[in-house]
């Protein structure tokens, strides 16, 4: 491996915190959500008052959901007002040719093995930015809105139902909303596979220490292998 020629501080602490809290929350939400959909354990015969089987899993899902929401809002704040050039939305302009034109095409070509050099970005490359926008930004908003709409169902007229209840007719009824929330939760494992693969591959191919950067905050530029 070549000598490190430059150390760049890319992911500041708020971004790293967000990343890991988000990762943990999503895994916890996926597991508890799947349990809600298909509760595995049946307690032995006995008095219902002594068991909290389902209530406990649902409670866990909701507690984690609110941490997830708070964390998401925090990241949104950081993107808009954090003044962090690698964490803001500023560069993401999918509507503008300057964004999806050359840089995006080059990155896609590189992923499709159509060009041999790897464009190198310090922050997110355009394809990664698009994936994050779709899966993390839109995906989270969808899971949060549908989740809060369902959360409000048992308290009509309450906060959640008043603000998010419109999701129910939008998706054609309560059952469909539950179904789509369930289907949407499969975004998580799909995203995790793609994300981990992309990160590890970049580490192997470009040696930019992108994997460790989300812990330490630093990416590296390395010198080419000495001949």
């Amino acid at each position: 491996m070549g000598r490190i020629i430059e150390e760049i501080y890319v992911w500041r602490l708020p971004v790293r915190l967000y990343h890991w809290i988000n990762a943990l929350c999503m895994v916890a939400l996926f597991v508890t959500g799947m349990y809600i959909a298909a509760p595995l354990f049946n307690p032995p015969l006995g008095e219902a008052v002594f068991y909290k089987g389902m209530a406990w899993w649902r409670y866990l899902h909701f507690v984690v959901a609110f941490i997830f929401i708070a964390n998401f809002l925090f990241r949104l704040y950081w993107a808009l007002f954090g003044g962090d050039k690698y964490a803001r939305f500023g560069g993401f302009r999918p509507w503008s040719p300057s964004w999806w034109g050359k840089p995006f095409r080059e990155q896609v070509e590189s992923y499709l093995f159509l060009r041999s050099d790897e464009p190198n970005y310090v922050g997110h490359n355009p394809v990664a930015a698009l994936a994050h926008f779709l899966f993390i930004f839109c995906g989270s908003i969808f899971m949060i809105f549908s989740g809060l709409a369902m959360y409000g169902e048992n308290n009509p007229g309450g906060f959640s139902e008043t603000l998010f209840g419109w999701m129910i007719p939008l998706f054609g009824g309560s059952y469909t909303l539950h179904f789509i929330h369930h289907l949407g939760s499969w975004m998580l494992p799909i995203y995790v596979i793609m994300h981990l693969y992309a990160v590890i591959r970049h580490d192997v191919v470009d040696r930019t220490s992108v994997t460790s950067s989300i812990i330490t905050g630093y990416k590296h530029k390395v010198e080419e292998e000495p001949d």
């Binding site: 509760p39 049946n42 008052v49 209530a55 406990w56």
Partner: peptide, 11 residues
């Protein structure tokens, strides 16, 4: 509903 919250289900 008490059985739902307790996780006690007909299988």
């Amino acid at each position: 509903r008490a059985f739902f919250d307790a996780g006690m289900f007909v299988e």
